[in-house]
């Protein structure tokens, strides 16, 4: 009888704080408005089963590189949207690393259905490297059709990650 009562009291007192624990890194390094805004996005991401660490890292990157609070908030909000689209494209079974890579691809202009197709072609294996290479190819200006085909061909053939990495190192 005593234990349930203690547990209920503890949950009542500390539950909300535990559920929405403030990330100390944000509170210590960002101005209060930016820290609060980023923390709100982190909490929303956690609820939506999106990876949260990339959001924190994006904010900290902006802080180290001297960006304004407004710019940091905009970058983190944009990343939040990209993570959501990547999760929708890659499915609930995608790992956080895959979703994070997918968000980078979407930011580089890769359509969500391209990520879906890559998931289908390489089901059961990690997509982190294929998606990252596809992002690099797009960022470097490779024509999209060619970039997609190169990565799809390797994925379809079950090639290892090294073969994908070799794509971006070819002259």
């Amino acid at each position: 009888m005593r234990s349930p009562a203690l547990l209920a009291t503890a949950l009542l007192l500390f539950g909300p704080a535990l559920l929405n624990a403030q990330d100390r890194r944000l509170a210590e390094r960002l101005d209060p408005i930016t820290a609060g805004a980023v923390q709100h996005l982190v909490d929303s991401a956690r609820t939506a089963r999106l990876p949260t660490e990339p959001l924190v890292q994006k904010a900290l990157e902006g802080n180290t590189l001297g960006a304004s609070g407004e710019r940091i908030r905009a970058a983190v909000a944009a990343l939040y949207g990209q993570l959501g689209r990547a999760r929708a494209a890659l499915g609930g079974s995608a790992t956080d690393a895959e979703v994070t890579a997918g968000a980078g691809a979407i930011r580089a202009g890769v359509p969500a259905d391209t990520l879906q197709r890559l998931r289908t072609l390489r089901s059961g294996r990690s997509l982190v490297v294929p998606i990252s290479v596809l992002t690099d190819l797009m960022t470097e200006g490779t024509p999209p059709d060619r970039a997609y085909r190169s990565v799809f061909d390797l994925a379809r053939d079950g090639r290892p990650d090294d073969d994908f990495l070799a794509l971006r190192e070819k002259p």
């Binding site: 994006k58 990157e61 902006g62 590189l65 001297g66 960006a67 710019r71 940091i72 905009a74 970058a75 944009a78 690099d136 960022t139």
Partner: peptide, 8 residues
């Protein structure tokens, strides 16, 4: 590898 950053 150089990649762009939203922060400049």
């Amino acid at each position: 590898r150089r990649v762009e950053s939203e922060f400049g």
